[in-house]
């Protein structure tokens, strides 16, 4: 056993154990670690925002005299800051409305280009592949799994009768997919836990 002599390893080990102590119950160690984590991450986010967004994209162009280049973002930023002045607070809604509208508009084209069309294309499969039974079965599952799943998300009809049967098959497909995703993600989480335990046992305590 070779205990680490680095102060930073000891601090990291303390915070790791303090966070893990939450598994038992809320306690002063967890609260301390939580406060430090939330506070330092908020400060880090602020600096990140300043050095990677506000300074290079707004402040520097203004300092170089290119104010026209950033006039619209500048106005929107000022409008957002009016939230601190109760009398003209309502002006901040314009900046929010602009961001929401832009996000929704970009989201629609992004969804069509990135998800909808590629997924539709991925479903255009033959239901009979000569000489390849495994691909044939796979294609049946993909095509009808997609159709039944879409049926579940049809909101104009209640889930009853024949339509209900199709929608219920759809939810089975959804749950099978979620089950697979659950297992896959749990594996990733376990590897994260192993990484943390390895840090405690190897880097800190020097036991393994």
């Amino acid at each position: 056993m070779h205990l680490s002599t680095s102060i930073w390893v000891w601090i990291a080990a303390f915070f790791t154990l303090a966070i893990f102590s939450f598994l038992y119950k809320d306690n002063p160690f967890y609260r301390f670690a939580e406060s430090v984590f939330v506070g330092s991450s908020a400060a880090f986010a602020f600096l990140n925002l300043w050095f990677f967004d506000v300074k290079p994209k707004l402040w520097d162009p203004i300092a170089k005299g290119n104010i026209l280049y950033v006039i619209i973002p500048l106005i929107l930023s000022i409008l957002m800051l009016t939230r601190f002045i109760p009398k003209i607070k309502w002006l901040s809604r314009w900046a929010i409305a602009f961001t929401v509208g832009m996000g929704a508009g970009l989201g629609i084209t992004g969804m069509i280009q990135g998800y909808l069309v590629p997924q539709l294309k991925g479903t255009f499969l033959p239901l009979w592949v000569p000489g390849n039974l495994a691909t044939t079965v796979n294609n049946w599952l993909l095509v009808f799994g997609t159709i039944f799943t879409i049926t579940y998300f049809y909101f104009s009809k209640p889930i009853k009768g024949k339509f209900g049967v199709a929608a219920k098959i759809g939810i089975i497909f959804i749950m099978v997919a979620f089950g697979a995703s659950f297992g896959y993600t749990i594996m990733a989480r376990v590897s994260l836990l192993i990484g943390r335990v390895y840090f405690l046992l190897h880097t800190w305590l020097g036991m393994v």
Binding site: F124, P126, V143, T146, I147, I150, S156
Partner: peptide, 28 residues
Amino acid sequence: TIKAEDWMKVIFIVLILIAVAFETASAI
């Protein structure tokens, strides 16, 4: 909006069925 989306889903299902029929005929 929801109603229009529902109709789009119906159109997509019909489109998938037609495309699958063509692909199957092509494979056979």
